[in-house]
Every structure is written in C-alpha cells, then in structure tokens.
Amino acid sequence: MQIFVKTLTGKTITLEVEPSDTIENVKAKIQDKEGIPPDQQRLIFAGKQLEDGRTLSDYNIQKDSTLHLVLR
C-alpha cells in the first residue's frame, strides 16, 4: 500500500509499505529515499509519536495515510 510522509519543509515522500511493516522498517525506507538516518527520525501520526517496534497496523495506519516526519 502507499503512504505519504510529510517533512517539515513541506516536502511529501511517497512510500510503498505493508500494514505489517514496523515503524523501524518505514524509517529505513525513508533513509533509502532521503538519506536521513533512522535515529534522527521521529514519525508522528494522529498526534502520536510512533514507536520503532510497533507496526503500521498497530496504529491503524491505512493506505494513503500521511505521517509527519520530525528530525531530532
């Protein structure tokens, strides 16, 4: 499925993911596309910070959802 990741600069990254993918996995995909190390990434969805060990389906993230990427 496709999800979107919006950065603070207003750029939107499109990712191909599975509901069973972990947040860690998603961060690795963002690193592949953007070169941002996962340890600098914070992903936010519906006002919640997403934890590495959980999956997209744990957070009820569905296709065409938009996550927000904050760098630390």
Rank of each mutant, 00 (worst) to 15 (best):
I44W: 14
D58G: 13
Q62E: 12
V17A: 03
G10F: 06
L43D: 00
K27T: 02
I13Y: 09
Q40W: 06
L8W: 12
D39L: 04
Q62T: 12
E51A: 11
T66L: 02
K11A: 10
P37T: 06
D64F: 05
K27I: 08
G10S: 06
F45Y: 14
Q62R: 09
G53A: 04
L71V: 03
I13P: 00
S20P: 12
K29E: 12
Q41L: 07
F4Y: 10
N25L: 09
E16K: 14
K33N: 08
P19M: 08
Q2M: 04
E24S: 10
S57M: 05
T22K: 06
Y59M: 12
S65Q: 14
K11I: 07
T12M: 15
Y59T: 02
I61T: 02
I30K: 00
P37M: 10
E18T: 08
I3F: 02
Q62S: 10
T14W: 04
Q31W: 07
F4L: 04
L67F: 12
L71F: 07
D39K: 07
M1T: 09
I30N: 01
L8P: 11
L15Q: 01
T22D: 15
K6D: 08
V17M: 10
K6L: 08
V70N: 11
D58Q: 05
I30G: 01
G53F: 13
K33E: 02
L50E: 00
V17N: 02
V5F: 06
I36V: 09
P19A: 06
L15K: 00
K33S: 03
V26S: 01
D64N: 12
E34S: 07
Q49D: 09
K29D: 08
T22V: 08
Q49F: 03
I30F: 02
V5G: 01
T9E: 11
K27H: 02
G10Y: 15
P38F: 13
F45Q: 03
T14G: 05
V5M: 03
F45D: 02
L67Y: 01
R54E: 10
H68V: 03
T22E: 04
V70K: 05
D39S: 04
S65W: 05
L71P: 03
T12L: 07
T12R: 14
L69Y: 02
R72L: 09
I3M: 05
H68S: 11
I36A: 04
V26P: 00
L43V: 08
T12K: 08
A46F: 12
D21F: 05
L50A: 02
P19N: 08
E16M: 10
I23S: 02
L50R: 00
I13A: 07
N25Y: 11
L8F: 14
S57W: 11
H68L: 02
G47L: 14
L50D: 00
E18M: 12
T55S: 10
D64A: 04
Q2W: 12
N60D: 12
L56I: 05
Y59R: 01
T66A: 15
Y59E: 13
N25I: 08
T22H: 14
K63W: 11
M1H: 06
Q49P: 12
Q49K: 07
V17K: 00
I44G: 09
K11M: 10
I13T: 03
T22L: 06
G10K: 09
T7A: 03
D32I: 07
E24D: 05
T12V: 05
P38N: 05
R72M: 12
T9R: 11
G35V: 03
D52Q: 11
E51S: 09
S57E: 15
Q31M: 03
A28H: 05
T14D: 06
T22W: 07
G47W: 11
K29T: 03
A46N: 15
A28Q: 03
Q49R: 08
L67Q: 01
N60L: 04
D52E: 05
L69F: 02
S65V: 07
H68M: 02
I44R: 10
L56T: 03
Q31S: 13
K33Y: 04
K33F: 08
R42P: 01
L8T: 06
Q41N: 14
T66G: 04
K11P: 15
K48W: 10
Q40V: 14
S65M: 06
D58F: 04
E16D: 07
N25G: 09
I3N: 00
H68F: 08
N60I: 07
Q31V: 15
P19S: 13
L15Y: 04
P19Q: 14
T66F: 11
F45T: 02
L50G: 01
R42H: 13
E16I: 15
K33W: 05
D39W: 07
D21H: 08
Q2E: 11
G35I: 05
I13E: 02
E18Y: 15
D39H: 04
P19Y: 04
N25F: 09
T9L: 09
D58P: 01
T55A: 15
Q31H: 12
L67V: 09
I13W: 07
Q31L: 09
T9G: 12
S65P: 01
M1N: 08
R72A: 07
D32V: 10
G10R: 12
A46V: 14
G35A: 10
D52G: 12
K27Y: 14
T9Q: 06
P19L: 08
F4H: 03
I61E: 00
Q49I: 05
E51I: 11
Y59H: 09
I13H: 03
I44E: 03
S57P: 06
F4V: 10
Q2G: 06
A28I: 03
G10H: 13
P37H: 09
V70M: 12
S65N: 06
Q49V: 05
E24F: 07
L8S: 06
Q62I: 10
T7D: 09
E34T: 06
I3A: 01
E34M: 05
T66P: 02
V26R: 00
L43W: 01
I23L: 15
G53P: 15
G53V: 15
R72D: 09
L8R: 03
R42M: 10
A46K: 13
F45I: 09
R54D: 13
I23E: 01
L43K: 00
V17L: 09
N25M: 12
R54F: 07
L56G: 01
S20V: 09
D58M: 15
L71S: 14
D58T: 14
D21E: 07
G35W: 13
I13V: 09
P37G: 10
K63S: 13
K63F: 04
E51G: 08
E16R: 15
E18A: 07
T12H: 12
Q2I: 14
S57V: 06
L56E: 00
V70F: 10
I3W: 00
I3V: 09
E18F: 15
L43Y: 07
V5R: 00
T9H: 13
T7K: 03
K6T: 15
L8K: 12
Q31D: 03
F45P: 00
M1V: 08
D64I: 06
D21A: 14
T55Y: 06
T9F: 04
G47H: 11
I30H: 00
L8V: 11
E34A: 11
K33L: 04
K27S: 02
L43E: 00
M1F: 04
Q62N: 13
A28W: 04
I23D: 01
K6A: 11
I3K: 00
H68K: 02
A28E: 15
K48I: 15
V5P: 00
S20T: 12
Q2H: 07
S65G: 05
F4K: 14
